[in-house]
Design a binder for these strands. Sequence first.
DNA 1: ATGGTGGATGGTCCA
Length: 255
Amino acid sequence: MIIATWNVNSISVRLPQLIDWLQTHKPNVVCLQETKTVDDKFPFEKLSEVGYNCEFFGERSYNGVAILSDRPIMNVRKGFIDGDEQSQKRLIEAEIDSVHIINVYIPNGSAVGSSKYEFKLDWLQRLHHHIAHNHDMNKQLVLCGDFNIATEDIDCYNAELVKGTIMVSDAERSSLDQVKALGFVDTFRMHNKEAGQFSWWDYRMGCFRRNMGFRIDHIWASESLASQCESVFIDKAPRKMERPSDHAPVVAKFN
DNA sequence: ATGGTGGATGGTCCA
């Protein structure tokens, strides 16, 4: 089973690129973030035409997540089971061929110390609670998406320069570490040990051209599933195209 | 120098 995650930054703008990409890579499961559209406008017909079922949880202008699959998508749940999510559409989960998939768009957090940063930390705590109370780490479980956190210094272009700032600050890394400690493995790091491999580059200041990026899009797996992970790669090709998303897809292959 | 670029929107907000 091939599982991918991609923050598309608007499903409507990126739909042609997404369809091309699906037909090239033929992933079995694709988790999307920042679809930025209400459910009534989600282009499920066009995705159905190329062989993908869709489940989506969107809102106007911001956020929005979706799961696509060429296999039946079962037991779909949207948002946190417990507690208020302030109406932001950032989590969708489902079961596909006995693999439980949790797709998240973790809040960006804006700047350390801001109210959005506090919201990010709170959201991470709720994610921990949600998984601890609703999932079995002994099963085949995936937690993937745009985490908006570079977990290690080698996941950002200049650790000294960005030390303590958003996406790398101690508090958010610590909160995410607690989620990981439930029993997840970072599948990318099972197979790739080198520094300087990124999944997001700011649109501004020519960051992509200068490779000023961060690895913030992740595919984590429970140990039983991680043991079946053959390979993981970041596909930079879509980021090089005209009018790209600012994120590149990450693709994991399980046998 | 609080920029710069892109998306949704129709003023700015968000990333």
